[in-house]
């Protein structure tokens, strides 16, 4: 099956609508399969990406995602960067707490996504936006 995705280059995708969240899931799945993540790890990273893409849309007011392959010399993985120029997160510790939400959701998006990936980095500034980088490595 050809996917038409050049894995040598990072894949960028705008997150402006519900349908874009679906596209992010499909893009992450394609790269996760290409770097030979196990089925469970594919499922975990796609689920994490879905949560974070929705956050970018709902809380960040939309933004972009960049999906690329990662290689640390021993293992390959998938790296995803979510960026928005929305309101930012005032209290990061609180935002990362299970069950905390300002949007009427379950409050599992950020905290749950962090548990599903191997590396999780978040940079945020009030009034400037949020940038989240996650990586999932093959076993």
């Amino acid at each position: 099956m050809t996917t038409g995705v050049d894995l040598g280059q990072p894949q960028a995708q705008a997150i402006r609508s519900d349908e874009d969240v679906v596209r992010v899931r499909q893009l992450v799945r394609t790269v996760a399969v290409a770097v030979k993540l196990s089925l469970v790890d594919q499922t975990k990273v796609v689920t994490a990406a879905s949560e974070l893409a929705r956050n970018t849309l709902v809380y960040g007011g939309g933004g972009t995602v960049e999906v690329s392959t990662a290689d640390n010399g021993r293992r390959k993985g998938v790296r995803i960067v979510f960026a928005d120029t929305g309101p930012g997160i005032a209290d990061l510790d609180l935002a990362l707490t299970d069950g905390y939400t300002t949007g009427g959701g379950l409050g599992l998006g950020l905290s749950g996504a962090r548990r599903l990936v191997d590396e999780f980095d978040i940079r945020t500034a009030v009034g400037e936006g949020t940038r989240i980088t996650v990586t999932k490595w093959s076993r």
Partner: peptide
């Protein structure tokens, strides 16, 4: 529900 989905759901906290 697929096994991988069940595993992921539990880890997500759902």
């Amino acid at each position: 529900m697929r096994p991988a989905v069940a595993i992921t759901l539990v880890e997500l906290g759902l």
